[in-house]
């Protein structure tokens, strides 16, 4: 049985990735699991300069899910390269760096800066954070702007480039196509859904930021549908994510068209979740005589049984 998968030029030892923003810089989880066994670790989104993020409260639980409005708090690219990347280099897992900017030129500059660091195997462009100020969302919601920003980053780096898409659009496949046309090697989806929760006693929003991003199993069927739509539309690989809690959930994403899957909120619930999911995928494959994860990708049967 072969577990490796290819995301364009990026080869992973297995299809299970730890999703950005849920796995810190890897260190936080290393006492609980051998992170070297993961297909890839995607680190918390980075920007050129450090960011403080939003005031508290930043998270609130909702039915089978959670809202977060962390606001892209991060230590900045330079500090990451100096203080966090050396630790990740010790593992054979692939390191994907999620990053963002506030302008097209910042995105490009961040990509240049990251491309010169040793130990980074791919870049994931975040054009889809729901907690940025109004106006920023245009990077991930207007396909013409998506095309421009991805094109700029594509010119700035030769590294495998993944574009993380927002579900807060009418037609996500259109966004995936714009990313592909601009030279992305893969798309990852979905980021969180913009959402809101109100305390009926205080009549105030439960998050200081008023709105936040919904993640967890509550969003999974939406994510599966969107992966399926994107897989039909583009020829580049799709990384599926959105509420994956178990191997069964991961396999569902693969059947919908995902080449690899990312585990996010589940890491918070169980720090071993990503490896448990990998083990479950292996058992499923072996029980069914499936020789490669690729046999599952897009294998949903649409004909009437």
């Amino acid at each position: 049985m072969k577990l490796s998968v290819n995301l364009g030029k990026l080869k992973l030892g297995n299809p299970v990735i730890a999703a950005s923003g849920t796995f810190g810089y890897g260190e936080e989880y290393s006492e609980f699991i051998d992170i070297g066994r993961l297909g890839a670790v995607t680190v918390k989104g980075l920007s050129l300069r450090p960011k403080d993020g939003n005031p508290p409260p930043r998270i609130v639980e909702t039915p089978a899910g959670m809202l977060n409005a962390v606001g892209l708090q991060n230590i900045g690219i330079d500090s990451f390269i100096k203080n966090k990347l050396p630790f990740l280099r010790r593992f054979r897992t692939r390191v994907i760096v999620n990053f963002f900017g506030d302008s097209i030129s910042e995105y490009a500059e961040a990509a240049v800066r990251l491309s010169s660091a040793k130990g980074i195997h791919a870049l994931e462009m975040n054009i889809s954070c729901p907690n940025k100020q109004a106006g920023w969302s245009i990077f991930g919601t207007d396909p013409r702007v998506t095309f421009r920003v991805v094109s700029a980053v594509r010119r700035a780096t030769g590294m495998p480039l993944i574009v993380k898409l927002s579900p807060n659009v009418t037609d996500i496949a259109l966004m995936a196509k714009a990313a592909e046309d601009a030279g992305a090697d893969a798309v990852s989806l979905i980021n969180t859904l913009t959402a809101m929760a109100i305390d009926i006693n205080t009549q105030r929003p439960k998050l200081a930021n008023v709105t936040g991003g919904l993640s967890g199993p509550a969003i999974r069927p939406v994510a599966v549908r969107m992966v399926w739509e994107c897989h039909k539309k583009v020829n580049i690989p799709v990384i599926g994510m959105g509420g994956i809690m178990s191997a069964e959930d991961a396999i569902e994403f693969m059947l919908a068209g995902a080449t690899a899957v990312a585990v996010g909120t589940a890491n918070f619930v169980n720090p071993r979740a990503a490896l448990d999911i990998l083990e479950g995928i292996k058992s499923f494959m072996s029980a069914r005589g499936i020789r490669s994860p690729g046999e599952l990708t897009g294998a949903v049967k649409l004909d009437v049984a």
Binding site: T22, E28, K44, R58, I59, M66, N68, V70, P271
Partner: peptide, 9 residues
Amino acid sequence: ACGIGACLG
């Protein structure tokens, strides 16, 4: 959410 320093919540 996590208790181990990852979620920044």
